[in-house]
């Protein structure tokens, strides 16, 4: 076989494999949406579940997921962004302690999410007596996305050209003035992208809230962070595994899945828009 033909075959194979992921995505989304949009209507989004989640809507789950994401956001974003700033700008580039912290962040991001759930149960639910609650679940999710935010922040700040820092120091600026006024604004789109993607992730995680926050069914809306809540991913899980009336419950699961997917897509879209805008403004 001559080399031009080999080249053509190799190229064709690689191309097909590259498109496979698109096919899977289209199939998955298409199927879920096809099933889900049949049940989604205004009432489905705004009503509470009725008759053992065989009728009614999923509003408490949407609200619960929103609260969980909000708490995890409030916990992880300030901590993660500030840690990222410290590790990227202040910490000495080498040195045993810093290397240890960096490795820890990497390891933390690789821990299976169910372990976070177990940890949340042991620490927040039991040890701190927060109970199965928005607070426990939000904190657990927060720790889960913390390393993602730290890494995104470090990555974003590392991409800020050093010449900006030099120019600022050359004018007599302190490190903090330089970070606050020059480095952070330039790195902000990257940080925001990371934050938004991690929010999407935290909305979809099931295992961390399994033991710490979620309940399969409650007709009441939460009125305090110490309440347990319904949440979209756990609701889907519950409907599929514990449902007693699948014919009516599985369509609701598809509806909830569609809502969750739409939220995650909206987050990705937002991240893409921010990235595109910053790329257009970037001229150095």
């Amino acid at each position: 076989m001559d080399k031009i033909r080999k080249e053509k075959i190799a190229f064709a194979v690689i191309k097909i494999l590259a498109y496979i992921s698109v096919v899977f995505l289209a199939m998955l989304v298409g199927y879920i949406f096809f099933k889900g949009f049949r049940v989604i209507n205004f009432r489905f989004l705004t009503d509470v579940p009725r008759k053992g989640v065989t009728e009614g809507g999923i509003f408490p789950a949407i609200l619960g997921t929103f609260y969980l994401v909000l708490v995890s956001f409030l916990v992880a974003v300030p901590t993660g962004v500030l840690s990222g700033i410290y590790l990227s700008e202040y910490a000495p580039k080498e040195g045993a302690v810093i290397r240890f912290v960096r490795v820890s962040v990497n390891v933390l991001s690789g821990i299976p999410s169910v372990i976070f759930g177990l940890f949340g149960l042991a620490i927040f639910v039991n040890k701190f007596h927060f109970g199965v609650s928005i607070l426990s679940g939000g904190l657990t999710l927060g720790i889960l996305i913390l390393p993602v935010i730290i890494q995104a922040t470090m990555e974003a700040l590392r991409s800020v050209p050093n010449s900006f820092r030099e120019a600022s120091f050359g004018l007599g600026a302190t490190k903090w003035q330089t970070v606050k006024n020059i480095v952070l604004p330039v790195g902000m789109p990257g940080i925001l992208t990371g934050v938004i993607l991690s929010v999407g992730r935290s909305a979809g995680e099931t295992a961390p809230i399994l033991f710490t926050a979620a309940t399969f069914y409650t007709g009441r809306l939460p009125h305090s962070i110490f309440n347990e809540v319904m949440a979209l991913p756990y609701m889907i899980y519950g409907l599929l595994t514990e449902g007693t009336f699948p014919a009516k419950q599985i369509p609701i699961a598809y509806g909830a899945s569609t809502v969750l997917l739409l939220f995650v897509f909206a987050m990705s879209l937002l991240a893409i828009i921010i990235r595109m805008r910053s790329r257009r403004m970037k001229k150095w």
């Binding site: 050209p161 010449s163 900006f164 030099e166 120019a167 600022s168 050359g170 004018l171 007599g172 600026a173 302190t174 003035q177 006024n181 020059i182 604004p185 330039v186 403004m281 970037k282 001229k283 150095w284």
Partner: peptide, 24 residues
Amino acid sequence: GMVFQKPNPFPKSIYENIAYGLRI
């Protein structure tokens, strides 16, 4: 003061590039 080898203005407006030094 210092002027560097490659022009390195901040990614800000012309005005802000100069005002920055005054503000800090």
